[in-house]
């Protein structure tokens, strides 16, 4: 398969990305999901006590999940499947464009929206009285890793998605898997074993990284910032490994199950 070849033309990928962004901008529903939707959870910080770190951590975690799931995961999935159905991808693959250039250019507009949300979260949080990230490197690393992971999940899901409409159903398992961890953390009666198991889900790992890396929380139940910049690195090791592992699994599955022709 030509996707094995890692070299891509930056100019051609940038050119295709611009056109994919233009197409996204012409589709109002897709544009709403990609741009407006991820910003909404940040508004949660306006509720509750001003500057309360627990409220801030919940709002930022929700914003990250929504930014990963909508502009990246769901958007990339539906754009790819839609274009595959319309035989647009089949046509492109007869030309000089490489498979990897097509995949990256479809993912980049949504990735840009998600990263923009990550950047905007900083001044918005500050405006609501929240502190800035204890470890901005971990924050930036998480943003890039999460975008990569959700993109890989999207291309893997595309393998068993028959049409853009069917994506509403086929996207459910990943949305559930990702949302499970952060939601379950809020249930105090959960056994420790189950809590541990859930910490290996991608969403829980993202929440852990945000709580320790941005807010300096030490552990799942913490409500006060106690970690220093140096402490956050050791707290980040586990969850970072979890996210890298999920990303590697998703990329490997996506590569093995890539389908370029419409599924009938």
């Amino acid at each position: 398969m030509s996707t094995v070849i890692p070299t891509i033309s930056v100019a051609r990928t940038a050119h295709l990305t611009r056109w994919n962004a233009a197409l996204l901008a012409r589709n109002r529903a897709a544009l709403f999901y990609a741009v407006v939707m991820p910003l909404l959870p940040l508004g949660l910080m306006a509720l509750g006590e001003r500057g309360n770190p627990t409220g801030g951590a919940n709002a930022v975690t929700t914003a990250f999940l929504v930014a990963g799931l909508f502009p990246v995961y769901y958007n990339v999935l539906s754009q790819f499947v839609g274009r595959r159905d319309e035989l647009v991808l089949k046509r492109m693959r007869t030309g000089q464009t490489k498979d990897l250039e097509l995949l990256v250019s479809i993912a980049l507009p949504g990735a840009f929206c998600a990263l923009l949300m990550c950047a905007l979260a900083l001044p918005i949080a500050a405006a609501f009285g929240q502190s800035l990230p204890v470890n901005p490197v971990i924050y930036a690393l998480l943003a890039v890793l999460a975008v990569t992971m959700f993109t890989a999940f999207a291309y893997w899901t595309a393998a068993w998605t028959r049409s853009a409409e069917a994506a509403q159903l086929t996207s459910m398992p990943i949305i559930f898997l990702v949302s499970l961890g952060p939601l379950a953390i809020t249930i105090p009666s959960l056994s420790e074993g189950l809590q541990n198991a859930l910490s290996f889900t991608p969403g829980a790992a993202m929440a852990d990284l945000l709580r320790s890396g941005w807010f300096g929380f030490d552990g799942a139940g913490a409500t006060d910032p106690s970690l220093t910049f140096a402490d956050t690195w050791s707290a980040a090791g586990g969850p970072l490994l979890v996210i890298v592992a999920w990303t590697a699994i998703a990329i490997s599955l996506a590569r093995r199950s890539m389908v370029w022709e419409p599924r009938s």
Partner: peptide, 26 residues
């Protein structure tokens, strides 16, 4: 190459479609 069946993004105009294709060629 011209395939037996192929497709284009319906939201692009003819000129935009050709400009999009043009940018992928050396």
């Amino acid at each position: 190459v011209l395939l037996q069946r192929s497709g284009f993004s319906g939201d692009l105009t003819v000129r935009e479609t050709l400009r999009q294709w043009s940018g992928t060629l050396v």
